[in-house]
Amino acid sequence: MFINVKYIALLIIVFFITGCQEDLMPSNDPIESTSVSREGEVIDDLLFTFSDGSSSSISERLSTHDAVVLYFTMWCPICDAHMTHIRSQIQPQYSNVDFIFVDYISGSVVETMNVQRSSGYTDFNVIADTNNELEAYFNGTMASTIIINKNFLVKLNGLFKTGNEIKSVLNKL
């Protein structure tokens, strides 16, 4: 029996393409999110554990700052680019804001401090989210950026883009 390989190959290709429709036809229609982002919500007074072993609550951080900005990092190339941008381009303009990186991947305080040092961010506050509590609470992932104002209201929960989105929120505080 003669098998036409050409048509079999085309059939296989069409089969795979038809199973991948969503990104082939992207949409800008707003969609309901089934996961929790907490943007627009007043949140709990969460407790942070930092890489140096100290602890501090959101209320304590907000007692001396107008807002808290959290950036979720896994110390990757993109993360490094974003963190560098935050440290050099955004933080200096907002001395009244508490910028904190959240390490949700290292799994321990010691390991968070180790990777923080090796990545060159010893001069920055880093939370060791060892039990992934913050990750679950905010549905965070790599480059998630969360801004919390003095009223414990989440003003932003989204992926870092250009940094302008952070400035836009902070300017309105």
């Binding site: 707003p30 969609i31 996961s35 992926l159």
Partner: peptide, 17 residues
């Protein structure tokens, strides 16, 4: 350029990237 209305399964305010 493409529209984006969700990131990692979470709905976001639509933007273009």
């Amino acid at each position: 350029e493409r529209p984006v209305n969700q990131e990692y399964g979470q709905g976001v305010s639509p933007y273009n990237k």
